[in-house]
């Protein structure tokens, strides 16, 4: 079970959170300008990497806030958490296990 640092509440058990999948997928500003495959790319296609993955989490049973997390999908190590709207931390060497 993951130990997640909510940027607002601090460390909490995974059971308080909900994972919302890949982060930084922006809703297209003008959906009509997209072809069906382009729209499908936004809607369904996912990077799904083995390794570092930026994803959205919500502290559902806590403060209710969404935030971003970079996590290694092969090891479950959480590299960083950052608030919505913030850029991912530049320091890509940090490691928490």
């Amino acid at each position: 079970m993951l130990l997640i640092s909510c940027p607002w509440c601090g460390q909490r058990d995974e059971s308080e959170f909900t994972c919302g999948g890949e982060a930084h997928i922006l809703r297209p500003a003008d959906p009509d300008a997209l072809s069906d495959p382009e729209w499908a790319d936004y809607l369904f296609m996912r990077t799904n990497p083995k390794g570092r993955h930026r994803e959205r989490w919500c502290h559902t049973h806590g403060c209710g806030r969404w935030f971003n997390m970079e996590r290694d999908t092969a090891t479950h190590d959480i590299v960083s958490v950052y608030r919505m709207g913030e850029a991912p931390p530049d320091d890509r060497d940090g490691n928490s296990s």
Binding site: G20, L26, R27, C58, G64, R65, W66, M84, G85
Partner: peptide, 13 residues
């Protein structure tokens, strides 16, 4: 409620 919150917080802050 979760759906609306998600859009508000993540897409349209």
């Amino acid at each position: 409620l979760a759906w609306l919150e998600e859009w508000l917080q993540t897409e349209w802050p």
